[in-house]
């Protein structure tokens, strides 16, 4: 897909998103647009609504109110738009009795477009595992399979939910390489994470959520300059403190 089409329309736009789970109002009228290529870190303490926003975009959580558009199209009741989104879930668990190859085939059956799985299998050294059952794989290998599934399609939007959880250092390096490659291709990448180092290292922009509202949105520089702090961790801490006082 050529770069300029990414720019014609907003990749993702969220208007006035409300969501409550029972009495717990997780999102209170969130407005958020992602129209630039690059990496956006979605930050916030536990229960601030990060995952809910991501899952809303993916259609896993259904909003109480508000509209979500992906590439200009309202996603309500739709599913084909997910061809445009690659998603890395936090926890990777697969059907135990399928082999890696079968799982890949299954996901390929479900998606349209060309899959680049062989390069990724190479990249993560998964070749010898293709005929192994998923139930017999170690956690690390499973996470690698998870990464292959996420990155094998050339989707314009990539959503990574806590991507570093449970990864060994080598895979972590590989992951960062992959993310950077994708950024180079001009994709819109959303990352939620608790690891501030990762934000510092990768993010172009930060969205900071607190109690279902967007508390801050802007570039890393803006965040630092607004808070007068030298690193993200402290900047976030100071955002929290400022609010409390």
């Amino acid at each position: 897909m050529p770069h300029d089409t990414f720019l014609i329309e907003e990749m993702i736009s969220i208007h006035h998103l409300h969501k409550a789970f029972g009495k717990n109002h997780v999102l209170n009228g969130v407005d958020l647009t992602f129209d630039q290529p690059g990496i956006v870190a979605v930050l916030g303490p536990n229960g601030s609504g990060k995952t809910t926003i991501i899952k809303s975009i993916l259609g896993m959580v259904l909003p109480d109110e508000g509209i979500i558009k992906v590439q200009g199209e309202d996603i309500k009741g739709k599913w084909l738009y997910r061809n445009q989104i690659a998603y890395l879930p936090q926890i990777a668990r697969f059907p135990e009795n399928l082999t890696v190859a079968e799982l890949l085939r299954m996901v390929k059956d479900l998606n349209t477009g060309t899959a680049h799985d062989s390069e990724l299998i190479e990249h993560f050294g998964l070749h010898d595992f293709l005929d192994k059952r998923l139930g017999n794989l170690s956690g690390g290998t499973r996470q690698k399979v998870n990464l292959v599934l996420t990155f094998m399609y050339d989707s314009p939007i990539i959503i990574l939910d806590e991507p570093t959880a449970g990864l060994d250092p080598i895979s972590l390096v590989r992951l960062k390489e992959l993310i950077n490659q994708q950024r180079m291709k001009g994709k819109t990448i959303l990352i939620t994470t608790h690891v501030m180092g990762l934000v510092e290292e990768l993010a172009d922009e930060v969205v900071f959520l607190l109690e279902g509202h967007i508390h801050f949105r802007g570039s890393l520089q803006l965040l630092k300059s607004q808070t007068g702090e030298g690193n993200v961790e402290k900047a976030i801490a100071s955002l929290l403190e400022r609010r409390d006082s």
């Binding site: 259609g59 599913w79 084909l80 738009y81 997910r82 879930p89 697969f94 996901v107 479900l110 998606n111």
Partner: peptide, 10 residues
Amino acid sequence: EFTELLLAQP
């Protein structure tokens, strides 16, 4: 968990 992964598929 696998269902969640499937839910993110088209």
